[in-house]
Structures are given as C-alpha cells and as structure tokens.
C-alpha cells in the first residue's frame, strides 16, 4: 500500500465545497501542531490528546450535519469543537486554561463545550458519552423535532458496557443518532486486535439489528458521504447507525505518550502517513485542476495566520479570577 488510492468520487462542480474541507483539515492540523508546541513549552497542562492524522473523520462527518444537530465527542476533540463552530481562539484559550476559553478555563483539553453551536463535549471517560448522545437523541424524539445527534468515539470504547447498553436502547427506541467510531487502531498503546474478539467494529451493530457501514477514514469525501447517509436515516427514519471510520493517529495517545515504541513501529507510522488525508485531497484537487498551487499556498498562509491569532488570543486571555473556583458548581 505505497500509492494512496484515489478519493471517493470527486465532482468538478463542487470545488468550493472541497476547498472548505481542505481548509478545515489544514486549520485543525496546524492548530494541533501549534498546540503540541505550546504544550511542550508548558503553556498547556494536563492531558492533551492530539488529532493529527485523523482530520478527515471530523471534517467529513461534521460537514454532513445541520447546525441545529447535536455533537458529542470524546477527549480527542479539539478539531471537532472547531469544525462545529467554536472559534479556534476559544479552543486554544481553553487549552491554556484561560477565562476566554470555551469552557471558561475550567474544562481544559478534554472538556470543550459550546452550547451555542450544540457542541456538547468533550468527555473524558471512555465510552461514557455514548448514553449522553442517545439521551439527546431521545430528547429529539420526545419533542418531535428532526434533530440528529452525531457521536464520535474511539474504537477502544466498543468493549465497554456503556457502548452495548446504549446501542441496544438506541435501536430499541429508534433514536436518531449516528455512532461514529474513529478506529485509529490503538486504544492508548493496545492494538484493537489485542483488545477485541471481533476486529471489525461495524459488525457489532448486528447484535442490535442496527444499520452499519465502514468507511476509509483517511478519505474525507468518503466519510462525508457515509455520514450523510447515516444522518439521513436518522433524520427521516429515526434509526441509528454504527459507522466505522478507519483512520490513524500520528501522535502518541497523549502528549505524554511515545509516538511509537513497544506497541507500534516507526515503519508502520511512516507507511500510514502515505495515506495522509490532507495530502490525498490536495493532490487530487491539483490533479483534477480544481485548485492551483498558488491557491493552496494562499490557503496555508490564511490558516497559519488564523492559528497564530488563536494563540495570541489565548495568550492574552486573562486567567480565571480566584472566585471562579466556586462558581458553576450548582445552578441557583
């Protein structure tokens, strides 16, 4: 697998849409690179899980929903928060623990929230946000709206009880939710094959008589199309879907973890990078003459500037005041 495959069908008439996808992927990648550097410089603390390599999943999927749909994610969610509509500065400020952060500096990297854009976290316990997503979908049915819930989680979550309890009830009650498994092959340092009896995540859906699909998670257009299908099923038929996107993370589990070592080889990582989702879209847009080198450079420049502005915003944002310690524990 040395030569990357062509992307899911590219239509010449949709150049502007592809440009948007490309720009979003470039933005969140640059954001994560700079976040990694800021972490190394001590500006970001705690756990910090970077998304580099997996951009096609969040970008493809989040372009397939409506602004009033709900999004839930795990703790590797900087990109999801940004693409869902959160200003990169508010996300970076949250990583910096500042008052201007999207959770007021009290959530941090793992707990990004943006109610205005229906981005509902940012959850740090593996698998625990699946029932929350089903709950939001339940509310959608309860109220008779056609809002859909998109729930991202890693493949390691499929072995935990909450996954099974939730899929069962979502199928039983016909809840409009898309369970999008970002299978990046490693739960921290444990390969899926060493943790699961069934290696194809999507096959778990048959236990619950649920629709399923698997998709190349390094192909942003394929992710977009697959999610669109699942979202339509949820919106029109109130049926949930288990969608498995096969992807790869380039970084360690968190900033504190090695990029490769005992659990995977450097060679494996280098080979996976040949499938880089950004490079694949970029090359195809050039090949199909849907974008010029100059336009790409211009886009990189814009993205660079946007991330620098996010860093500046975060850096200038004040620390939360001491009294913030005791606010937001209870709602009066």
């Amino acid at each position: 697998m040395s030569q990357p495959a062509r992307l899911h069908h590219v239509e010449p008439g949709r150049a502007e849409f592809y440009h948007r996808l490309l720009r979003q992927m470039l933005l969140v990648r640059r954001f994560e690179e700079r976040a990694g550097e800021a972490y190394a410089q001590g500006q970001i603390g705690g756990f910090c899980h970077l998304y580099i390599g997996q951009e096609a999943v969040a970008v493809g999927a989040l372009n397939a929903i409506r602004p009033d749909d709900y999004v839930f994610a795990s703790y590797r969610e900087h990109a999801h928060a940004i693409i869902a509509g959160t200003a990169p500065g508010a996300v970076m400020a949250e990583l910096f623990g500042r008052e201007g952060g999207c959770s007021g500096g009290k959530g941090g990297s793992m707990h990004l929230f943006n109610v205005e854009h229906n981005f509902l976290g940012g959850h740090g316990i593996v698998g625990a946000h699946l029932p929350l997503a089903a709950g939001a979908a339940f509310a959608s049915r309860y109220r008779g709206t056609d809002q859909v819930v998109l729930c991202f989680f890693g493949e390691a979550a499929v072995n935990i009880g909450a996954f099974h309890e939730t899929l069962n009830m979502a199928a039983l009650w016909e809840l409009p939710v898309v369970f999008l498994c970002e299978n990046n092959r490693y739960g921290m340092g444990t390969a899926l094959e060493r943790a699961a009896a069934v290696w194809d995540v999507y096959r778990r859906a048959c236990s619950y008589d649920m629709a399923e699909e698997t998709v190349d998670g390094m192909d942003v257009l394929a992710v977009y199309e697959a999610t669109r299908g699942a979202v339509t099923r949820a919106r029109q038929e109130h049926l949930p879907t288990l969608l498995e996107a096969r992807t790869y993370r380039y970084m360690g589990h968190s900033m504190a973890d090695p990029i490769h070592g005992h659990y995977r080889t450097k060679e494996e990582l280098e080979e996976q990078k040949l499938q880089d989702p950004i490079q694949r879209l970029l090359r195809q847009l050039l090949d199909d003459e849907l974008m010029t080198d100059a336009a790409i450079e211009r886009m990189r420049g814009e993205v660079e500037q946007e991330v620098e502005e996010a860093l500046r915003f975060a850096d200038e944002s004040p620390e939360p005041p001491p009294e913030a310690l005791y606010t937001d524990v209870y709602r009066d």
Binding site: Y70, F72, L120, A128, L130, P131, L132, A133, A134, G135, A136, A137, F138, A139, S140, Y142, G161, A162, E165, T166, N168, M169, L172, W173
Partner: peptide
C-alpha cells in the same frame, strides 16, 4: 409511553440517557 418509559436492565445506559436528555433541556 412517551413520558413513562420502561427500560431494559441497563442502569448505566439509561442513567446516561437521562443525563443526555437533561443536557438539552428536558
């Protein structure tokens, strides 16, 4: 049955569904 919902025996799951519903205002 829209407002009085029997669940399977899955405390973690339906407690979480409750929290999720509360997150969006129920």
């Amino acid at each position: 049955e829209r407002r009085v919902i029997d669940t399977p025996i899955a405390e973690l799951g339906f407690a979480g569904i409750g929290v999720g519903a509360a997150m969006v205002g129920l």
